[in-house]
Simulated assay, not measured.
Amino acid sequence: MHRLVDDMFRNCLVIGLTTLTLAATTHVAAANSLNPDLINLAPNRWVRQDTPQVKGLSRQPHAGLAYDSKRGTLLIFGSNTHGTDWDNSVHEFDPVAARWTTHYPAAPPTSYRADDKGRAIAGEQRPLPWAMHTYAGVAYDPQRDGLIITARPEHNPIGKKIPAATIHPSWFYSQTRREWQMLPDSGQAPPKFFGAAAAYDERRGVAVAYRWGIWELLPHGAGHEWVKASKENHHQLHYTMVYDSHRGNFAVFGDYRNSNEVWIYTPGPRPGDEGRWEERQPGGDPAPRSQQFPVAFDRDQGVFLLVPGNTEFELQPSGRERALKPKSNSTFVYAPDDNRYIRLRDADMPALGMNFMMAYDPRHKVFLLVTGKPAQAPTVWALKLDLAPLKR
C-alpha cells in the first residue's frame, strides 16, 4: 500500500514537473517572440529602429499601411506612380526580426492590360493590381486574412495608353495564398474610391471605406460588393479614418483643406445600415490644422496617436490663406472621452511629407511609424505611449 502511494506521488511529481517545464518553455518561447528593443523603449518619444537596408525597397509617400493582427507585422501597398515608379508589390515588416520582406517582384509596365471584362490588371502570370496611390485606403481583414485595397490608379498615366481598361476594381490580397482577387468579382465597377480611407469594423466584421459617403463591403452571392450605408460626406482628400475598437466607431482626421477637428462616424447596428456623424472640436493643447498625416489607435489605452504637420499659412492679396509645406511634425494624443488633444513635448519629428504609414502594435504595445524620403530606404520609428505623466 505504501509502495503504491509512493509510486503515485512520484508519478504526480513527474507530471507536475513536466507541466512546469512545458509552461516555462512556453513562457520562454513567448518571450523570445518579442523584440526586447521595443519592449524596453523610453516612453513618449520616437526611437529609430535599427533595420537592415533592402535593395530596391524605397518608401512610397502615396502608399498606405495596415497591421496584420495574425502575424504582428506591417503590410504596405501603394506607389508614387506618375510614370516613374511601378511598385505594385506587397511589402511586409516584421517588428520582432526588424526585417523587411517583399512578397513578389513588381510587374513590368509591359504587362499592364485589360482583361476580357475590361478590368485593369497587371502581371505576367497571376493578375495583380496596377501601381497606384493608395493613401489611407488600405485595411487588414482578419476574418479573410488579407488586405483590402480601396483605391484607383487615377495618377498612373499608363491608363491613357490602355483605353480598354474601363473598370478599376477594388482588390483583396490573401496573406495565406499570397494571391490577389478583384472585388467585386462579378465584373461590376466598384465606387470611384480614388483618395478613399478604409478601416475594418471588428464588431460587425465588415470593411468600411469613406469617399463621398460611407461604403461597406458586404457578401453578395459568390463575391463581395460595396454597399453605400451613408450619403453624408465631410471631407475632400488626404484624410485618415481609423477604427476605435473600444467604442465601436470610426474617427476621421485631417483633410485637403487642412483641419484639426475630429469627425466621428458611428455605424448602424447591422452591416449596410446607415450610421450617424458627429463633429468634434477638441480642447487641450492646440493641434495644427493639417492633412495627409499618420494616425493610429492604441487599443490598450483607448486613445489615438497622430503626427500632424506644423502647417503655416500665408495670407494672399485676395485675402485667402495659402498653406505652406510643413517644416516639422508634432505628435499628439487624442483622448475621445475627454475630447482633447495632448501634445507629446519630446516627440517632434522632421517633416514627414505625405505619410499614411503608422500602426499600433498590441504585442509590443508600441506605435510603429514608417518614414523616409521618396526613392530612399524606409526608416522605422517606434513610440511607447505612457499616459500617466500626461494627465498630471
Rank of each mutant, 00 (worst) to 15 (best):
A136F: 07
Y341P: 02
G64I: 00
Q188M: 12
G309W: 00
N80D: 14
A139L: 11
I148D: 01
T166H: 10
P129T: 08
M8Y: 12
A114W: 08
S230L: 03
P169I: 07
L306P: 05
D68T: 05
P308Y: 03
A198R: 00
S318V: 09
I15T: 12
S230V: 08
P374F: 04
T150S: 15
G284M: 07
M132F: 03
V262Y: 00
N156R: 03
A296N: 04
A351G: 12
R178K: 15
P308T: 05
P61V: 04
H234S: 12
L13H: 11
W130F: 10
I162K: 03
N40D: 09
L315Y: 07
S170D: 13
S328I: 09
L57H: 09
E314L: 14
N339H: 10
M182L: 11
F77H: 11
R59T: 12
K391R: 15
R363I: 05
Y140R: 01
K231D: 13
F297N: 02
V14H: 11
Y112S: 06
P288Y: 06
T266Y: 09
A207F: 01
S58W: 11
T73W: 04
A222E: 13
G195E: 00
H224L: 14
L13N: 08
I162E: 02
G284T: 09
P142Y: 03
G205W: 05
N339V: 14
L57S: 10
N249I: 09
V206W: 00
M8G: 10
E314Y: 11
I121D: 00
P184D: 04
D273G: 06
Q376Y: 10
P191L: 08
G309V: 02
R343H: 05
I167R: 04
A151M: 03
R113K: 14
W171Q: 01
N44F: 09
L147F: 06
L315E: 13
R270L: 13
S186M: 09
G302K: 02
D141M: 04
V54M: 15
H133F: 09
V303R: 00
L38V: 01
E202D: 13
A165Y: 03
A139W: 07
A42I: 13
W46I: 03
G254F: 02
V307E: 00
G223W: 13
L324C: 07
